[in-house]
Each structure stands twice: as structure tokens, then as C-alpha cells.
């Protein structure tokens, strides 16, 4: 259980992260707001509560690994990593600029704290599975956390990996779906209906946990519970809202990757509590 003080602290951070994200994406006029806002609490709980990481030694072998398979949410990953101490928060302003360490999608070579490259969708679970097996083979106790988008589940490779995880079932792998229900072109239910996602994972031999992906205590509890399940792979389906926190972005596919104009920026910032 997470205590109230810690819950308050994380919620406070998430508010700040959302505001800073809107600031940076408005300033840069490029980048993906919708999926960054939906994955905010997931990344915050992982990097501030759950994972064993060392910002002073970002490459140490015994760290836990995070694979943000939905790589277009890179701006939020960068914001959380910066707060965690991997690089200066001011560096966020270089997002997507020439010569920046903050590429449009995460690259493990460029950014301290980024454990894996992503961008092309559908590959992160395969990579996470390989990493988990490799860590286990070497007797390391590190865990691997894979964050998938729900639109990404359209990709067939995800299901190859889901099948393989059942066969190899490394106990050090936790998978989280940022289940925001919206992809670039529209609602997932329209673009490619995924039906009963829980039943699908279960049919592949997985255990499914569900939680509210914007309630940090709920996420934290689910992550703890996932670690106790060792007989089969576990996925946490975290129900989220695309564009969470900005009324006109919530649930709207139009804000998947749209630049934020001045008028919308003003509204968004005031909704998130104004500039500091």
C-alpha cells in the first residue's frame, strides 16, 4: 500500500508533468500529446516507486528495465526521467531539435535512462521478453517492465510475443497496457476492434489484472500483485483516458499527434492549474 503522503507527492508530480508537457509541445509545435497524457501516471509510478534505477549510473547491469513500446509517448517518458534525475529538466526544451539527445521517439543510444529504442509499434514485448530471459539466464534479479499502447495491439508481433511469453514465462517480466481506447485515426473500437482483451490474453495463458491507470495507488498495488504471480505471465490492463487532464483532448484522436496552437495552449494550461 502506498501511503497518503506518497500518493499526494506522485499526484503533484503528475500535475506538473502534464503542464510541462503541454508547455514543451506548444513551444516545439511537434510531438504527441494524447498518448503522453494517458501514460503519465503509469510512467511516474514505475520510475518513482516501483523500479530499481540509478540516475547516477544509468547503465548499471542490475537495474530494472523499462521498455516504452508505445514510443510516441516519448515526451512524457523524457519528462519523468528528467525529474528522476537522469538529465536536466531544462533539456526538455530541446525535444525534437537537431543535435538533441531527445529524439522524436526514444533511442537507447541517445538518452540517459532510456533502456530501449522504440517507435515502430509492436516490438516492445518481444524485446522485453528477450531482456527478461537474458537477465534470468545471468542470475540477475532485475525486472523488465513493458508498456504497450492499445492501438499497438493491432500489430501481429505483439501476439507472437504474447504466445512466446507463455512458453518461456520469465518471472521477471511485467507488461502494462495503456488502455486509452483511442488510436491515431479514431477509437480503437472503430479502427480495429479488439473485442474482449482480457479474454484474449487469458486464452494465450496470461493472467490479467485491471486497474485505473490514473490512480497511482491502484497502479502501485497492481504492480505489487503482478510480482506475486509466478505461474504465468501477467498483464496489467490500465484503463486510461487519451489526453487525460485537458478537456478538449480527452478521448479525441485528433490530439494524437497534433501541434498545440496558442488558443488551445491557453485553455490547456489554465485547466492544468495555470503557469507556475
Amino acid at each position: 500500500m502506498m501511503n497518503q503522503a506518497e500518493t499526494d507527492r506522485l499526484n503533484h508530480l503528475c500535475r506538473q508533468f502534464r503542464k510541462d508537457l503541454i508547455e514543451v509541445l506548444h513551444e516545439r509545435q511537434t510531438g504527441h500529446p494524447g498518448g503522453s497524457l494517458s501514460v503519465c501516471e503509469i510512467l511516474t509510478v514505475l520510475l518513482f516507486e516501483e523500479m530499481r534505477v540509478d540516475p547516477d549510473h544509468p547503465d548499471r547491469v542490475d537495474r530494472d528495465r523499462l521498455i516504452l513500446s508505445k514510443g510516441h509517448a516519448a515526451p512524457m517518458l523524457y519528462r519523468v526521467l528528467a525529474e528522476r534525475g537522469f538529465f536536466p529538466v531544462e533539456e526538455l526544451h530541446t525535444l525534437r531539435k537537431l543535435n538533441s539527445r531527445l529524439q522524436g521517439h526514444p533511442c537507447l543510444l541517445d538518452t540517459p535512462g532510456v533502456d530501449m529504442t522504440s517507435g515502430p509499434l509492436g516490438l516492445g514485448l518481444s524485446v522485453g521478453l528477450g531482456a527478461a530471459i537474458g537477465l534470468q539466464k545471468q542470475g540477475l534479479s532485475s525486472r523488465v517492465y513493458v508498456v504497450l499502447g492499445d492501438g499497438e495491439l493491432n500489430e501481429g508481433t505483439v501476439w507472437e510475443a504474447v504466445m512466446s511469453a507463455s512458453k518461456f514465462h520469465p518471472e521477471n517480466l511485467t507488461t502494462i497496457v495503456d488502455y486509452n481506447g483511442v488510436q491515431l485515426d479514431g477509437p480503437t473500437s472503430v479502427i480495429m476492434p479488439e473485442g474482449d482483451l482480457k479474454a484474449k490474453f487469458e486464452a494465450f495463458g496470461w493472467q490479467v489484472l485491471t486497474c485505473d491507470g490514473h490512480i497511482v495507488a491502484d497502479l502501485y498495488d497492481s504492480l505489487q500483485k503482478a510480482k506475486t504471480i509466478t505461474s504465468k505471465p501477467v498483464v496489467i490492463i490500465a484503463k486510461t483516458v487519451k489526453g487525460k487532464g485537458v478537456s478538449f483532448m480527452e478521448g479525441q484522436n485528433a490530439w494524437h499527434g497534433k501541434a498545440i496552437d496558442d488558443a488551445h495552449y491557453e485553455i490547456a494550461i489554465s485547466e492544468l492549474g495555470g503557469t507556475d
Partner: peptide, 21 residues
Amino acid sequence: NVGIAEANMTGMAAGLASVGM
């Protein structure tokens, strides 16, 4: 043996390489 799943196999290899295998 990952079965007939070449894309997944290559992704898994990347994960294995990333942790030193």
C-alpha cells in the same frame, strides 16, 4: 525455439543483446 515467428524472434534477440547475451 520461438516457433514460426521471425519478427518476434528478432525482437527477442535485441532484448537478449541489450542485457549482455
